[in-house]
Design a protein around this nucleic acid. Structure first.
Lengths: 351, 351
DNA sequence: ATGAAAGCGCTAACAC
DNA sequence: GTGTTAGCGCTTTCAT
């Protein structure tokens, strides 16, 4: 039992930081070399059963927890995936991040989270710190980024996945769907119901480029298909139920004989629904309402809400798949680096 | 200029990993030693203006990004805060995490996220990996954890903040409010409106201990104050609008003359509201409805929802404050390590 | 104010 | 299968 003595020279005369248990301590207790412990930790099958037993015992008696920081430094790539979304308060991104986190955690990857708040400079700063972690991958939202952000990412050589949007050219990989097409789908649906005086209600579209693209797709399809009128109305603040009420009122003022609205978000649609109820406007008889997102309440509100489901879950899964494939060696090239998760129009009572 | 020759021995004959720009490269370009660069990065004022200029120039021409992994290893504590919540899909936690992330990012700290999905074993695993990052702090949700989790955390010496609950004894620090008191507030409010046949509608209370405590507090207050009846009804699945509809129907069956309900979550309350509307039960005349959370829609739904606001934002701010105070040296002791953020009952039309 | 030197705890060749 | 040997890129005394 020479453990005690050898432990002593681990105590320097100066700094004393609670002396974390290291791999070396485990190695000593188990009577093997540190590299064997390291090997055991990464591929248990590669060490002899006997040594494995000893190591396992040592680990548990010492309560050893591997230091991933040191591991990341030595391996020159940390087990971290950095995810940058505009806001985690947004149910869409919360869903994707949640799924992504679970999928990646199952493979031993950690998620580092950042919020850009829809700002490109903020995003750039986040990307900079993200790269400082030598991450296994970085995940960004959308395809619009500052030139510097793209440069940083490209120069880093780190796998990059842009999510929630396709249709431009990605830095590296992309998983998502086309926002103009979502807008067009909504327009076609409303038009097919015989509606002709349309409005698109959106929030924060000066910053949220994806919402703006949905609005454009909607307006263009409305115009293209013929004799419908279409107004796009923006609320500069966040997409909330409250904003939905305000927007509906503005639409009512600006669009004569308004008979249908599409919203950039189900929260806005819900607010519009409430406002219609308050004003005694029958939905869908007088005004048809379509949303986007298929949120929690959309199936159960009154009337139930026709909406477009983007599948944040699926996006999360596909992003995870791409990242894990990259880590496990398979480097997909060509079209498999862009995945279209599509969108589904869910017709309910509100139209 | 002997820079060239010394650069050569950085290129080993074997692995070649895209040769990241290091602090040493910066030092060479700026004609100073690496430690001066390091110093400059941490306290720019401590190096001479001349050297500072050179270093800054070198950094920007090389596009140097410091490696935080290496820094964390050398400094024996990484600039990471690990946050573990039951689910980020839950608007409560999304709000707190969002605030926390912003506050910490402003001080150069990264947030690592984990989801326990309300499972203690899952939480334990997450805590284990969290500690593997030698984090500056770890943030947990609630006060219920496995014994092993507590032990791990205590042994690690890392600052721990438990949030969204107080009233037990925390591992280290706690920021939140008392859930039984929230339940009691709801009960008192309903009682004060003359209601006597009460029900508490909750979801996932077998796992969500905090919701269960709100239910208990509600039931006890109802009984304590006298001649009211109270039934607690649980939906095993997640707290959704859909669940709210189901729960209201069960309450209607189980409680004769039901005249008021309190819900463990505004989503459930919203579902109940919709179901009342569907069944033609006037709210609040026939049934009063109170929620918890003050979510986005609560002020604008019909009728607007009386609810209890827990202030996830404030919790996030206070947690950040505690963590930053710890890092900056000030070690608060005693009662200042437990912060009660309280709760506010927001009375609206539904009661 | 600046630099030299000694690690932080681990991984990954490579030899045995 | 196991141990030896070098680092990974940075921080931090301690001298100068």
């Amino acid at each position: 039992m020479d453990v005690g003595s050898s432990l002593q020279n681990r105590v320097p005369r100066k700094r004393r930081k609670m002396q974390r248990v290291t791999m070396m301590d485990v190695a000593k207790l188990a009577q093997v070399s540190p590299s064997t412990v390291s090997l055991y930790l990464r591929k248990p099958a590669a060490v002899s059963p006997a040594a494995g037993q000893e190591i396992a015992r040592a680990i548990s008696t010492l309560g050893y927890v591997p230091n991933l920081v040191a591991g990341g430094l030595a391996a020159a790539s940390s087990k971290v995936v950095s995810i940058i979304v505009p806001s985690i308060r947004n149910a869409f991104f919360a869903e994707t991040v949640s799924t992504l986190q679970s999928e990646l955690a199952a493979e031993g990857l950690q998620v580092i989270l950042g919020h850009s708040e829809y700002g490109e400079e903020q995003e750039e700063a986040l990307v900079r710190t993200a790269l400082a972690w030598a991450p296994a991958a970085v995940v960004l939202t959308g395809l619009s980024h500052s030139a510097e952000t793209r440069k940083l990412l490209q120069a880093s050589g780190v796998p990059v996945v842009e999510m929630w949007e396709i249709g431009g050219n990605p830095i590296d990989m992309a998983v998502g769907f086309s926002h103009p097409q979502v807008g067009a789908s909504a327009a076609r649906h409303l038009l097919s119901k015989g509606r002709r005086s349309l409005a698109f209600l959106g929030a924060r579209m000066q910053e949220d480029h994806r919402a703006a693209k949905r609005a454009n797709g909607f307006a263009e399809e409305a115009k293209r298909t013929g004799h419908a009128t279409c107004e796009v109305i923006n609320h500069p603040g966040a997409a909330t139920v409250e904003a939905g009420s305000l927007l509906l009122n503005r639409a009512l003022q600006q669009v004569p004989n308004l008979d249908a609205i599409a919203c950039s978000n189900d929260l806005i649609a819900l607010g519009a629904l409430f406002e219609c109820q308050r004003q005694g406007l029958a939905v869908p008889d007088k005004i048809a309402v379509a949303g986007f997102g298929d949120l929690d309440f959309s199936a159960s509100c009154i009337p139930s809400l026709t909406t477009i489901r983007p599948s944040g879950d699926l996006i999360g899964k596909e992003v995870a798949r791409l990242i894990l494939a990259g880590i496990h060696g398979a480097q997909p090239t060509g079209p498999s680096r862009i995945i279209d998760t599509g969108h589904v129009l869910v017709e309910r009572r509100s139209t």
